[in-house]
Design a protein around this nucleic acid. Structure first.
Lengths: 209, 209
DNA sequence: TAGATTGTTAATCGATTAACAATC
DNA sequence: TAGATTGTTAATCGATTAACAATC
């Protein structure tokens, strides 16, 4: 909530990776780590680690290093993992269901409340996830009655673009976008895109060069 | 194949996005575009577009701009989309199947040949995709008999790390990694990771700042 | 030809790395 | 205390933007 500006996108993109490594150190029972040790494991410079962390506060201690558990918790807070999020998934195709159940299983704090699909009757409910599939027609009224923080969009590009104003009116502030398009949103909304197709092209580029 | 070095990662990451916009211009029947026009649509500077494209060659023409169809084809070649790739998917869970069928449907040139799973009998074959699911035990011998370019990894982190040497010995040179781990590979192999969990954390960060 | 727009060099900006004084 | 390692400033490096001559 606090330190809004001054943090570059590059830094934010690195924070989850620090979080992952610290989580793994915790699992191994390691309680302290120096920036030098961590830099060797992560293949980044110790300088960058210290620089990055100090943007958010002095989490370390001279002569000692960083306490793994403490740093893990603090980065969790920075990333906003210390609260709950209500999600809906728009689309109920394979990718939509995979992402939805993935989030449900893996991520405490991120609660998938419903799916919405143009043809909800086409998709069968899996016992395990217990998340209802609604018709897309009901989305607007659903959002009137339910506070939703994040919408996962896994529908074709054109449909995705049409959803933005509906989500905006419905109070949704975050979009996790899997459609093959960029989405224009008002400044108070946030889009995080996962362009699988572009990722695959980057791989094929690297394979040939 | 040619211009190996000198191309930064940032540039490579932008190429698929140019490709997407050019594809969409083609669909609209637009045959020429200037860097200035494209920059407005894509929200980047015209300077950057020209700079990026010129790393690979002079695709434009002074006083005219760029021919959309030609540029689309050329970027396709740069990205390695002018050839075929044989893929296998390791894992047959929801995410694995979603990514596998996604690639199969969306991407000409990327052919999914097989799935491998620890418990292949657990997963039913979908009529539509017609891709067999093998036991993971058969992976090594399968790779002896079949040339595979890319392995999609959608299994837990620990299992993913154990796969690398097997894939290496089997001649696989590209890994599209969906596991929650970094993978160390020899220099002649390429890893492209999709860390969904980190993407979601970046979204939650932005929602709170 | 005149106008438009690229290709490319030079200037600026930002991000990464190095260095070291502060301090646990 | 001495040794280790952070926090932070300064130096370097790379990427982006601006400018403009070349040229279609």
């Amino acid at each position: 909530m606090l330190d809004n500006k001054g943090i570059s996108k590059a830094v934010i993109n690195r924070m989850p990776r620090y979080y992952r490594y610290l989580g793994s150190l915790m699992e191994q029972g390691i309680v302290r780590i120096s920036s030098a040790d961590l830099s060797r494991q992560m293949n980044v410079t110790a300088s960058q680690i210290r620089q990055d962390l100090n943007l958010f506060g002095g989490f370390g201690q001279q002569g000692y290093g960083y306490n793994v558990g403490h740093l893990y918790t603090e980065i969790g807070k920075i990333l906003g993992l210390d609260r709950e999020y209500h999600l809906i998934v728009i689309g109920a195709g394979r990718l939509a269901r995979a992402v939805g159940s993935y989030v449900g299983f893996q991520k405490r704090g991120f609660r998938v409340k419903a799916y919405f699909d143009r043809n909800p009757e086409k998709h069968t409910l899996n016992r395990e996830d217990e998340v209802p599939i609604h018709s897309l027609d009901e989305l607007e009224s659903y959002l009137k009655d339910n506070r939703i923080d994040i919408a996962v969009i896994a529908v074709p590009a054109e449909a995705a673009r049409l959803l933005v104003p509906v989500l905006d009116r419905g109070g949704v502030r975050g979009i996790w976008n899997f459609a093959h398009t960029d989405l224009d949103v008002p400044a108070y909304m946030t889009v995080q895109s996962v362009h699988l197709s572009e990722s695959l092209m980057q791989l094929s580029y690297k394979l040939n060069h």
